[in-house]
Structures are given as structure tokens and as C-alpha cells.
Amino acid sequence: MEAGWRHAVIPWLAQAPAAPALNMWNAPAGTPEIWMKVGIAMLAGFGLLAALIAAPTRLRRPISGAFIFLAGLFWVLVFLFPKPIDSQTPHEQRPRGFVQDVSFWLADAIPVVSNFSNILTAFILGLGVFSLVRIHLMRVAKKQNDWPFSVVLLVSMVAMATFGYWDWKTRLDLGGAKVDEAWPLAAYGKDLLFDGMLQVMEAAMFSLIAFFILSAAYRAFRIRSVEATILLCAALIAMLNLMGAVVVTWDGMIESFGKDNAFVMNFTLSSVAGFIRDNLQTPGIRAIDFGIGLGALAMGLRLWLSLERVGGN
């Protein structure tokens, strides 16, 4: 184990360029070897799944608990071990020793582990899409209320997915630059559906908030209670401070009273708004933030150590 234990044991997690080019965890692309290894790994994974199905009831909690613990342990170790400044230090120059080995290995592994949640969520997405499709197919099949709209939904879904993949495939085959020049049908379809419609609809939905914010402010900002009055005043000052023209006028007026008087200059709109922000808003937010951070940390600890159950019994 001359190259250090971490090069032999789990370089899969640390797919660093510095690791030996080929080891038991990888195989050259395009060779039968990699396909075979991938196949075996998948089979092993599904074997594990079969084993889980057969697992006795009393083992269920310990098994799922172990998975949570191991997943969380990685980041806890990252927290506890010192971080290398330059994780690209070539192998030969890296310091040896247990702590150093672990911390270099952790640094190498971060980019790999970081993707796990995302990949798993992507696999799970099918479940959500399945639910959506099921609800709307049922609605169409049973001719329930509003079934034509379900048809609209399903058709636009299929169209978007089809053009998405078609355009993607064309770009892979021809190269992106060529597609941008030639504009085949796939490019039109994808551009119109995605850029012309989906993105525009997102922007439109987002901008609706402007209207809602107006009606909410009109309704809620009334001097009914101490709280509402405070809310109203703070919001008014913040809004006035957003208007460059108002700021310039107000501050100009203050300056005319005494440009060199430090006391007078405290009453410029930017100073007043700044004072509220620095001495009242910031600590308020910070207080909430401390609480939320502690809550998240506590919940994280409870989940990590399986102190709290998630889901059913």
C-alpha cells in the first residue's frame, strides 16, 4: 500500500485527476470491460434491493438509519478534518499520515459526493411525472370536469419533451453551431416552446406578484395596531429610499441646512434608511436567522442520528 490506503480502498469517491489513471474502480471508456463492470454493479444494486425486500421487519429501522448516518458522516468528517489549501498538490508532494490522507481524500471526494442528492432526485422525478400523467389521463378517460384541459396539458407535455430531445439529438449530431445556423424544425420547435412560451410564462407569472404586492400593501398597511403601524412606517421609508429622485431631492434639502454639520447630515434619507437598516433591520434578521440556523442544525442532528422518524412506522 505504498500509494497510501486511500488510493486502493475507495478512489471511486475521489475521482481526482491525481489518482492512478486506472484502478479497480474504473475502466477505459468504450471497452467491453467498462460495460461489463457497469452491468455487474447494476445487478449487484438490484440484488441489494431484492435483499431489502426480503429483510425482516426488525432490521428495517437499523438499515435505513445506517444509510442516513453514513451519508451524513461524510460532511461531518469534512467539517472535522483540516482542509488542504491546494487539493491539486500532486501525489508525490502530498504529506503522508492518516490525517493528511483523510483530508486530501475528503477534498477529492467533495465534487463527487455533491452530486448524489441531485442524481437521486432526478431518478425520483419519474414518480412525480407519473402522478401528474395518471391524474390527467384518468380525467380524460372518465371525461371528468375540465377534461379538455387535461388534454392540453398532456399534449404540451409530449410536445415539449419530444422537441427537447429532438433538438438535443440534432445538436449532438450536427454540433450546436451548425444548428444555430441552419435552424432545422427541431430548433424552431424547442425555441418556440421553451424560449417563446415556457420562459415567458414563467416571467409573466413572476411579474403578477407586482399586482399582488400592491393589493396586499393597500389592505394590510393600515394604522390599526402598533405592529401594523410600525410595518407601514418602515416600509414607507424603505420605498422612498428606493426612488433616486426622492433621495436626491430630500438629501439636497437637508444639505442646504448645513452641508458641513454632522448632526444635520444624519437626517438625509439615505442616512435614516441606513440607520434603520444597520441598527434595526440587520439585528432583527440576524436574530431570526440564528434561530432558523439552530433549528436546521437540530433537525439535521435528529435526522442524522435517526432520533426522529420520518414517514410512517
Binding site: L214, A217, F221, R224, L232, L236, M243, V246
Partner: peptide, 23 residues
């Protein structure tokens, strides 16, 4: 920027009108 100014003025006016009317 000008549109932002006019919209904010509308908002302030709306809030003020609501309060004055209430009082």
C-alpha cells in the same frame, strides 16, 4: 427607473388613501 418611480408613487398613494379613508 422612471416607471419604478411612478409605480412606487402609486403604491404610496394607495396606502395613504386607504389610511386617510379609514381615519
Amino acid at each position: 427607473y422612471l416607471a419604478l418611480h411612478t409605480c412606487l408613487v402609486l403604491m404610496i398613494v394607495a396606502v395613504v388613501v386607504g389610511n386617510v379613508a379609514m381615519v
